[in-house]
Design a protein around this nucleic acid. Structure first.
Lengths: 190, 190
DNA sequence: CAAAACCTACCTATTGGAAGGCAGTTTTCT
DNA sequence: AGAAAACTGCCTTCCAATAGGTAGGTTTTG
């Protein structure tokens, strides 16, 4: 029993979008990758615009779930910040892949406005998560030198997304690590 | 005497690449924008790959010249850092446009490796510029809390590129400003 | 059996690009 | 100096490949 075809399509499309960009792959590529005929994709996703929406919806839901999980079993601010950093690092896949949110922001003009809305929600959610982490890290002492948590959160998100670009530019994870090193050094062991 | 056609093509292509991405525009779009026949573009740029290279070359040269200019008439570290920030902000064009380096990094897979090399050189150059600025800002006292200038530079570049993405995601300059606010507050008046 | 999943076969528009022509300017040769 | 050759810049015409998408039939499955 092979995996659900629709899921396989979403997986393949997500990988493609994150590595070659949304304009960089076609239904034909997808079909070959999944092992299905091109026209059959339309059965699951009537249009490519449709696919992009479902792609972003799933991506958002996944991270919302992850955050909800963290809200239940409370960790320190430092651990939460580390978790987010590690997630962005893991998402790089060695410098080949970007966060879907980053990729879709870059090719915004080829996407339906619904995707932009979802990207916005994604960014807001991550920013709130980071804000909470900085707030908490400040009070529990696991993050040093915390100024305004809101400003810290905005800066951190940009830093992570930029660090992903840096790593991708030279397909070298070290560039990501280098960019976040200063922030990481503010997290105290616990 | 109208502007040089080749320059007009480069200008149009740069605008397009930065607003809709390299995969987001075609020779046909370019032709219409410049007021020339599509096939005539091949006279100036045999292939689109060729165009991308010349685009990035010009972009790199422009910023190398800017930096050289600043090296001659020495400014404070704080002023230099502010200059770079302002440049990234201005390049946003209100949230519609990205740095060519960011755009080309995102659509890396559709570009010749020569472009990747140039992007690399671009990033190295800006990083060095920032490193010098932090170094200088530390000694002349125009930037506070400077730790390792090399790490600061890597973080700053990522911050700027990420902040551009943030602003573009919601087509709102305020998001850029918000992301760089914390860093900017470390620059003392002079 | 009906719905879901997938197929073959097409379609239209667009993609980047090739081939070759042609007027005007510049360079080269006698 | 004047003719010939070469170059520049743009054109028209054409092309194979690919894009996303549609129509309608067949297989698979609950």
């Amino acid at each position: 029993m092979p995996i659900d075809t629709k899921t396989a399509l979403l997986d393949s499309a997500e990988r493609a979008a994150r590595t070659v960009g949304f304009d960089g792959f076609s239904y034909a590529d997808l079909a070959e990758d999944v092992g299905i005929r091109k026209a059959s994709i339309h059965h699951h996703f009537p249009s490519k615009a449709n696919l992009s929406v479902e792609l972003m919806q799933r991506y958002l839901a996944k991270f919302e779930a992850l955050r909800a999980e963290f809200k239940e079993t409370p960790k320190s601010g430092g651990v939460q910040l580390s978790t987010v950093i590690d997630n962005y690092r893991a998402g790089l896949d060695g410098g080949k892949s970007l966060c879907l949110c980053v990729s879709f922001t870059a090719s915004r003009e080829s996407l339906p406005s619904e995707v932009s809305q979802l990207v916005r929600r994604f960014r807001t959610m991550i920013t709130e998560w980071l804000e909470d982490a900085f707030q908490l890290g400040h009070s529990d002492g696991t993050i040093t030198h915390v100024q305004d948590p809101e400003q810290e959160a905005a800066a951190a998100l940009s830093l992570f997304e930029g660090a992903q670009l840096a790593a991708r530019a030279q397909e070298d994870l070290a560039l990501f690590d280098n960019a976040v090193l200063l922030l990481k050094s503010r997290i105290t062991q616990n």
